[in-house]
Design a protein around this nucleic acid. Sequence first.
DNA 1: TGGCGAATAGAATATTCATTCCACCGTTCC
DNA 2: GGAACGGTGGAATGAATATTCTATTCGCCA
Lengths: 283, 283
Amino acid sequence: MAETDSIDIPQDFDGLKATILERKAQLPKRLRQVAAYALDHPDEIAFGTAASIATSADVQPSTLVRFAQHFGFEGFSSLQQIFRARLRERTPGYDERLKALSANDHSKLESGSIFNGFVAAAHRSLDNIATSVEPEAFERAVNILAGAETIYLVAKRRSYPISGYMAYAFGKLKVKYQMVGTAAGIDDDILAMVGPKDAAFAVSFSPYASESINQAKFLASRKVPVVSLTDSAFSPLAESSTVWFELVEADHAGFRSLSASMAFAMALTVAVAEKRRRSAQEH
Amino acid sequence: MAETDSIDIPQDFDGLKATILERKAQLPKRLRQVAAYALDHPDEIAFGTAASIATSADVQPSTLVRFAQHFGFEGFSSLQQIFRARLRERTPGYDERLKALSANDHSKLESGSIFNGFVAAAHRSLDNIATSVEPEAFERAVNILAGAETIYLVAKRRSYPISGYMAYAFGKLKVKYQMVGTAAGIDDDILAMVGPKDAAFAVSFSPYASESINQAKFLASRKVPVVSLTDSAFSPLAESSTVWFELVEADHAGFRSLSASMAFAMALTVAVAEKRRRSAQEH
DNA sequence: TGGCGAATAGAATATTCATTCCACCGTTCC
DNA sequence: GGAACGGTGGAATGAATATTCTATTCGCCA
């Protein structure tokens, strides 16, 4: 029926928008009406049903289908997917960064796309963290750790580099800390020394290392405040935590980024040291 | 039937999330499963159908309805509205988003500016890395490490988390590696075993840890190819390296980010494993 | 004015969907 | 040990949906 120029069916919202604007002049009355409505109310298209949209746009449902088919889509539903994808991907700055990435010539080489992928994932993670971490909670976490005598760092496996960095930075900043879980066996001895004046920072992402979870539980049972960083509100870590942060790292090829966690760890570390410096000055 | 406590039906996503977390412990198995999925994949709930979501969450469609009713909603559809509203409200415009960043911002609170600073520094680092790393050099580095029998990881202090991550990832990927510099004293013994079939990856940023430099020199003298990551063309590490990458991390308050280095390390790790997998398939 | 083709409206249809219902299972409480 | 109960899976149901089909209208040119 309609000439299915399968070559130039718009694949994303920007492409669709461009195509619509291009052909807008040649469009029949009702289809133009739909075009205008679609570009003015993209959210409605994304969420509404054909019937509800038709009513809003003062058009028949069948017109929507014809509109979609006119642009090469199979039907209204597949057109709608474009509008939905637009809302999904709506991570700020994401498009521009991706374009900048593909502009360099990494992708030409075999390993290049892997490199690009991880840089992009790191960007996404960072975009995400800025909105997901609540300033008040962060402030509370800083207060807890700044008030502690010794800060216990709990992290295993994939999270270990994070506590590793914090250990280094705390050392430089003359903040007393103790890593839990470096060498096997002595963890219990270390944990036996904790007191209510101390505090802990725990990091664990799915799949959660059972030792970290247990150690956090133990600390909580000893009335030691626990600040934790994890990837789900349902993380078993959250139960044992006084303050916890949900941080979903973007991934590439199944390997999750660590960039957001690292940035968080750095900020927390420095903020704690800064807080201590200030309160020391006051006395 | 279900006691419709019409007073506390969550009206927005945040309220719903709070309610879910509150009752999480008392939830039956399947409902908890749905709860976890819902909070971890809100976009899927917003756009998917009950059937598709049920499949993804490994649950029956009816369970979704029961879940919704359990929280006071009439059915799944009305619950879904909450998730859709969440996407609607997300400020779509780019400039609006910037406004949101500074308004919803951390900088009001004491520690907030520190947090923002580190996230921004991480972004800058990542923006930087994409242009400063040459694809050809990256490809060469991958080839060198992929061809090695054992990969020696050299990093101290601030760089240690990077090699720490690589060690974890290499372990998962079944790539033979050896960390140099974990415990004091045994480094020499470890290095005594290196052969020309091996390769090394060294990381060191200014101020360069002298041990890392010396170990890299030693490796080079043994004809072991060294891939290195450092922050200056004048780095003493560069002299001993077969391939080296200059990577300047942005800093906040004098603390340099690690995000770019981490992204680089991940990319390198996965690219090496991928290369090995492919060449293994060919034979 | 008359005729022709594209465009449209609106009913008809087939599909998909959320919801309901019921039988089964595992616990808990007499 | 058995009854009661909340939780669960899965099929049945009826509503709602996108799409198709056809009669009608509209715009255009002779």
